Simulated scan of single mutants.
Amino acid sequence: MSTTIANATTDHPQTVHFLGSLLTFRARAADTGGTFSIVESCSAPGAGAPPHLQADAEAFLVTEGSFEFMLGETWRRCGPGEFVYVAPGVVHAFRNAASTPSRMLIINLPGGPHENFFKAVGEPVNAEPPVFPPMGAPDVAYLTTEAERFGITILPTPHH
């Protein structure tokens, strides 16, 4: 068995802007033999992910601020230190519920599909300082089509 030690400072992690969140790739599928990937998300107030589901598992660890998570039809507000696990096939969404940027770690198991989707649709940016580019209305048809390529199904947004 081989062991790899990756250092984000020297490996120059890539960051992309996607739907009001800055996504910094901290552990890529290529770094973990495809086992998992970790993305650090810094989300603008009100920003997040629309309802979606996928075949991979996803987990979230809030590190700063506050997020609201939708799991099925239930919403749950989470703060620093709180963890949310989403089993494959479960409809879920999230949004920053704070009036300032909020941060969390997003873990995908296995690594690859979400990471590749974010890279395909995200706009490369600098992560520090966290400056959110101006955002227009998203191209829903394009995002939905791209998501399907990576096994992710984007669903209509419910009223909350």
Rank of each mutant, 00 (worst) to 15 (best):
E115L: 03
V125F: 02
V91D: 10
L109K: 11
V84R: 09
V91K: 12
P110Y: 09
V125Q: 03
V121G: 02
V86N: 01
M104T: 01
G72T: 05
I107P: 00
F118A: 01
F117R: 00
R76F: 12
E58R: 07
E68P: 01
K119D: 08
P113R: 05
L61G: 04
F60H: 08
E68G: 06
N96P: 02
N126W: 10
A120K: 03
L109H: 15
P124K: 00
A59T: 11
G81F: 08
V90P: 10
T63E: 03
R77C: 10
G111K: 05
F94A: 04
A120Q: 07
V90A: 15
P88K: 08
E123G: 00
R95P: 01
L71M: 14
N126H: 10
T74L: 13
V62W: 00
L105F: 11
G122A: 01
P80A: 15
N126Q: 15
G89S: 15
A127W: 05
L71Q: 11
G79T: 10
T63K: 05
M104N: 11
E64H: 12
F67H: 07
C78L: 14
L105N: 01
Y85G: 12
A55F: 13
T63D: 02
G65K: 00
V84Q: 04
F60T: 02
R103Y: 04
H92N: 13
P101C: 01
A98R: 09
G72Y: 09
V91S: 10
G79H: 14
T74I: 15
A98Y: 08
S66P: 09
V90T: 15
V121Y: 00
I106M: 02
V84A: 06
D56R: 11
F69I: 05
P101G: 03
T100I: 11
Y85C: 12
M104V: 07
A97H: 13
N108H: 14
L71S: 10
C78F: 08
V90Y: 14
V91I: 13
N126K: 13
C78I: 03
N108Y: 10
F69P: 01
A55W: 14
G111Q: 04
